[in-house]
Simulated assay, not measured.
Amino acid sequence: MKKIFVDYRKCVACKSCETACAVAHHPGGSLFALVGDSRTQVNVRVLGVEHEAFPVSCRHCDPAACLSACPAGAISRDPETGAVVQTPEKCQACAMCAMVCPFDAISFKHIHRALPGREVAYKCDLCHERLIRGEEPACVQACHTGALVFQESEPQREKRAAASLKVYLLGEGGEPPLFSMYRELRRRAFARRRMEEP
């Protein structure tokens, strides 16, 4: 399954992702339609942490805690895209989904798809309708710095895990000077000792 990955080092907090998300989820489908509309739905939020910026949205976990916790059956997984999506008409606004979400990705308000006068839970739906049409999620398409990328999750996860382990073991600077030579000398010494054993 493809997921949205974030490289916070490339994020410049321009909030293009927020704007694109709002336009993509608005019935008017234009920036002009958003002006003054309190029911505008923005599924991604750019948060500032000290001098860094980080776009936060639903991670479409598998298994998804919000899906299991929803007593009304308002949350489901789209079989075609794998996205965890909500049905606002079924939402009872009990906030069980928000309580179990580890990413604080679920918000509440009266959105366009909700029943009249009702606040409901809403979150990123991975733009699953755009995915079915063969397009990228709106936030990824709008990101000009490459801070948001839409890729297969398993190869990306393995790549990041390997990189994180290397940084954890060796620090940001990578291998210290002459480290590879030291490792080769140790390998040879170990091989020599094994040959000398009776």
Rank of each mutant, 00 (worst) to 15 (best):
E80H: 08
A105P: 01
C21G: 03
A83I: 01
K159H: 14
L67G: 03
V42Q: 07
M1F: 10
A22D: 09
R45Y: 10
V44F: 04
T81P: 04
C11V: 05
L115Q: 15
I106A: 02
M1L: 09
A69E: 04
G29K: 11
H144I: 08
C61N: 08
R39A: 09
H144F: 01
E184L: 13
R193E: 11
A72M: 07
K109T: 04
P63A: 08
S16K: 11
L169H: 14
V35P: 00
A13T: 03
A138H: 09
V23H: 02
F150K: 05
V84G: 04
N43V: 05
D7V: 07
Q151L: 15
C70L: 03
F32V: 10
R45I: 12
E129G: 06
E129P: 00
C91D: 04
E184M: 11
S107D: 12
F5V: 06
R39M: 09
M96R: 14
L67Q: 12
R118F: 11
C101Q: 07
L170M: 10
L67H: 07
C70G: 08
F54P: 00
P88Y: 07
A95Y: 13
A69H: 06
K3S: 08
A114M: 02
S153F: 14
E136M: 13
Q156C: 01
R113S: 15
V84Y: 03
L126Q: 10
F54Q: 11
R9A: 14
P137Y: 08
K159Q: 12
D125R: 01
F32A: 14
C127G: 10
H51I: 00
F103D: 13
R59V: 07
R45Q: 13
Q86I: 12
C17W: 03
T145S: 13
S30Y: 04
K123S: 09
Y122T: 01
N43T: 15
A22H: 05
A98N: 07
E196M: 13
G73M: 09
G28E: 06
S76G: 11
A191C: 01
V149E: 10
G174K: 11
A93V: 05
C101I: 09
C97D: 02
P116T: 10
H112F: 08
K15A: 11
D78E: 06
A121Y: 06
M195T: 10
A93H: 10
L47I: 14
H128L: 01
Y8K: 15
K15R: 15
A163W: 12
C97F: 06
S180A: 11
M181E: 13
P176C: 04
K2C: 01
E184S: 13
E158I: 07
C70Q: 04
A95Q: 13
R183Y: 11
F108L: 13
I4N: 03
L165I: 12
M181D: 10
V35I: 14
G146Q: 11
V49E: 05
L126M: 15
A142W: 05
P176R: 15
S76D: 07
